[in-house]
Design a protein around this nucleic acid. Sequence first.
DNA 1: CGCATTTTTGAATCATATCAAACCCTGTGG
DNA 2: CCACAGGGTTTGATATGATTCAAAAATGCG
Lengths: 235, 235
Amino acid sequence: MLDATVLEARLRPAAVTAAGWPALAPSHDDGTSLGDFLSLGGARMNFERNAEIFAEDDAADYVYRLVSGCVRATRLFADGRRQIGEFHLAGDVFGLDMGATHAFAAEAVDDCVVQLVRRSALFARAATDPELGRDLWHHAAAGFERARERVVLLGRKTAQERLAAFLIEMDTRFGGRGSFELPMSRLDVADYLGLTIETVSRSFSHFEHEGLIALPQARRVRFVNRAALSWRSGH
Amino acid sequence: MLDATVLEARLRPAAVTAAGWPALAPSHDDGTSLGDFLSLGGARMNFERNAEIFAEDDAADYVYRLVSGCVRATRLFADGRRQIGEFHLAGDVFGLDMGATHAFAAEAVDDCVVQLVRRSALFARAATDPELGRDLWHHAAAGFERARERVVLLGRKTAQERLAAFLIEMDTRFGGRGSFELPMSRLDVADYLGLTIETVSRSFSHFEHEGLIALPQARRVRFVNRAALSWRSGH
DNA sequence: CGCATTTTTGAATCATATCAAACCCTGTGG
DNA sequence: CCACAGGGTTTGATATGATTCAAAAATGCG
């Protein structure tokens, strides 16, 4: 739990330049007063593996911050096809839709702890707090940039390029140590990358046989040749 | 490339065409003070068909508003693959990236008139104008929502579903009259939908033969059975 | 008109999906 | 300690939607 002192430290007054809305290093985690707003004011809730946090078309009255665990944003077709829009990891703020209802459902990939506040409270505060307003823009703009990169990935990359890009993204988000545990199943990865579970599994095996990664367990990934993997991602 | 010097050169009176921008239906544009800010303060520039407005990795110092014409946001791979991130139509604001450089290039699909202001001017104003701050959020959030829908389209829809969704999107943006002229080539459509030009052409022909659309000319589309087309889009 | 560009159509090929089955964990209970 | 069960993962064989290669037909333009 954050106390007021930690909050002060995170507000980073030095970041405000003459321009007013400086370009911050893009990151999944806002690490800004938006996150702090959620951290401090938010009620806490637990969700177990596969629990629905909110459904598509649910009223978008709350904004969420993931304290721990992993969440997937999903869109389900009538015929069973599924697309995962994004994965959220600890620290990420999600559920902040523009319309009155959520455009994607949110489900717990594993056991999750989230904090939530009313969207109206956030907007009310933003009306008087210019820094929070700037952070809201940052949050939306960062989401936009990630989504555009995914458009490129899904529109033009091969199965192996998609998986390589995914592994590098996950490594980066887990700290860039080149070794991490995936919280999601192969099926989740497939629905994130616009592929089938079999193609994802085959691509994993392919990278392992090629010596780009090691897979001590199915969900445990260790980079053996990061440069080659990065090359394979198609940049 | 568009550095400040080149910009100055291009801003000479010759480049500034005659009066008042036409009252075009704002498609993606918010129609808010963000658009107004660009409309009122912006210098005007013309670009002819296929001209580059800015390149990928160019400094993102300017924000643009399309007065007339159509612009494509493109990402080019080293091996020639291309993905179009979005099409911008009259009224749209574009080029407002979060980072220091543009993540996509912008090119004129047909002859275009754009207005532009320095991003720093926009941000400076946003620091003191809460309404403009809110509009910036709106702009980014709307872009985010569109990009997410495209993730679903590219990740899970068939070629025909993609084209149907595209035609409905274009019709909506052109006023929803069920009859419109596409400004872009089949190749542009293909690179927008993550397909090849042949597959796009075949899908057009298929819809025509099925009686869903009429194609008096290749780029002139008239809806014959909108409901069926909408159904085909996979929603 | 004649030439370049764009679009359409056809045939062959390929990457990925689909169908099917085996494998491998990990927890449970005899 | 082993048998078993169930979810998750991998692998194999085949099918298919989209791509690629090729060429004809429109379209537009000087």
